[in-house]
Design a protein around this nucleic acid. Sequence first.
DNA 1: CAATCTACCGCAATTACCTCA
DNA 2: AATGAGGTAATTGCGGTAGAT
Length: 283
Amino acid sequence: MGLDQDANSSGLHLVLGLSLTASVKETAPSTKPDDHHLCVIKPTPTKPYPSKEPSLTLGLSGKGYHVPRNNVAINKVYCEDPLEFSRQTSPHSVVSSFSTGRVIKRERDLSCEDMEVDAEERVSSRVSDEDEDGTNARKKLRLTKEQSALLEESFKQHSTLNPKQKQALARQLNLRPRQVEVWFQNRRARTKLKQTEVDCEFLKKCCETLTDENRRLKKELQELKALKLAQPLYMPMPAATLTMCPSCERLGGVSDNGSNKSPFSMAPKPHFYNPFANPSAAC
DNA sequence: CAATCTACCGCAATTACCTCA
DNA sequence: AATGAGGTAATTGCGGTAGAT
């Protein structure tokens, strides 16, 4: 279901959850998302939360009801208590349904996930969220310490949530499922970012080490060249200095003419940093 | 059985609000 | 009081997947 598709690449250990989304289809089909002047949310027999009351929500026409791209109008109402705020405002209230089809889907999904807020309340909330002064201030919920702690704890157990877990957590936190979902998304992103930073630091260190090694080898090469000029041309090589390539098993340091050009011809190096551990690379 | 449609989900990128120095 | 930076909630758009037709 795509839950774990990126688990390996992101370094996360995701739990494969059994999705119930197939049954979430309270859809009023539309061919053009932007043509949604009227959003109807209706229950179906496949509704995953049968204990809830069916709801019917009507949205206003888009004409004369301009909604900005970011749908900021929906969060107009704000109060000091984040919980109260989360109850009063709906990040995906019906207003959102007028912008994109995607949001419409979200809204419908929300409508079955979060039925404790009934349709009428949400409509009135939407109306109360409507701008009276024309400003579109997107107010931001601030999670309490308790909420953050619980979310964090839950994230440690599983970095992704199936719909049931999301619903349960949202109920427990007195948040909307969508808010829980968003929190987990952002949390995963932060984790990934942090991991990327760690990886970046590691690669930087590797780079520094390799640069040092390169510098050292260059210096050594210069010394050897100088040494070669100072010494006789056909100087017999001590057997102890011969090394064998572990990959191709050729004996280094023994060329046809006995000259000393092979990288394996010299005494073993005190240290060689090879991050790729590929002995054949030297051949 | 293949093609198409639809709904859903996760992610990346971005926006925008809020807090704090 | 003003302001810039950082944290983060929220939005948007896209791609992938699965079920239905």
